[in-house]
């Protein structure tokens, strides 16, 4: 692991003002270094998903800065679309495009954004499909796939843009228990290849095994962060101790 900082988050706050004011994030600061796997854990409503969605500006932060590869992407003058191409995202509910084949799902962005020719993109997509064992489903539609297959496709779809960081928003929460393993395996192999990853998850086993650093959030704040060993075996924060005791 190098010490090169890929994403720098400073004093991030997010307030939702629909019906009543909800302070989802209350001053979050952290760094994500290149090649690092950061796992974010915490109870429901702790702000961990909002934090992740702020990283590629799917949620516009209320205040604070996010510096990605040296550029403050919270600046309204920055063209966020260019930077999003470098940040792959995987959603809880897969969000594959139901009207496109698996192959088209994967190639639509690189081709239509003129990052690659159709042939190049398809060659790359096929290579990635082989890697996750789904090459035979290239011409299937998402509705013909199982949940685990859909999520593996969603991961390689994001990889087709050759991102510098992958953001995972509870990637296994909507899956049958039997299918969690196949998705985690893909994520593990990604981590082993040195991909920078920020993962919001309830899979503590994954956090322990793959995470370089674990962040515990509650009430829109980072209450504790450290190595998996530190967080799981020697938790300092009382709220974290309570959270972990309920899990085990």
């Amino acid at each position: 692991m190098t010490t090169d900082v890929l994403i720098q988050v400073r004093d991030l706050t997010k307030t939702f003002t629909s019906a009543s004011e909800i302070h989802a994030l209350n001053g979050v600061s952290t760094d994500v270094r290149r090649g690092e796997v950061v796992v974010v854990i915490g109870p429901s409503g702790s702000g961990k998903s909002t934090f992740l969605r702020c990283l590629n500006l799917l949620e516009i932060p209320t205040s604070g800065t996010i510096t990605f590869e040296g550029v403050d992407i919270t600046d309204p003058k920055v063209n966020i679309n260019v930077h999003r191409q470098k940040m792959g995202m995987v959603f809880q509910h897969f969000n594959l495009f139901p009207n496109m084949t698996v192959l088209r799902n994967m190639t639509v962005a690189p081709v239509e954004l003129h990052r690659k020719s159709k042939q190049e993109a398809e060659a790359m997509a096929m290579k990635l499909l082989e890697r996750v064992g789904l090459a035979d489903r290239a011409n299937a539609y998402p509705s013909q796939l199982s949940g685990g297959q859909k999520q593996r496709i969603a991961i390689v779809r994001a990889l087709c843009m050759e991102p510098d960081v992958m953001l995972f928003d509870e990637p296994t929460s909507a899956l049958d228990p039997e299918m969690v393993g196949e998705v985690l395996d893909v994520m593990k192999s990604l981590a082993k290849d040195g991909m920078t990853m920020v993962v919001v998850t309830h899979e503590m086993g994954f956090a322990r095994e793959v995470g370089d650093r674990v962040i515990f959030m509650d009430g829109g704040k980072i209450l504790e962060e450290g190595s998996p060993e530190q967080i799981f075996n020697h938790p300092q924060n009382a709220r974290l101790q309570e959270f972990l005791s309920k899990l085990l």
Partner: peptide
């Protein structure tokens, strides 16, 4: 579903491209 829109945006499509390639065809 808004997830379709977000998936499009997260891949780097701008608003109009997301509409054109992802949302409008569906």
């Amino acid at each position: 579903d808004n997830g379709q829109f977000e998936a499009g945006r997260s891949l780097g499509f701008n608003y109009v491209q997301t509409m054109r390639f992802i949302v409008i065809p569906q």
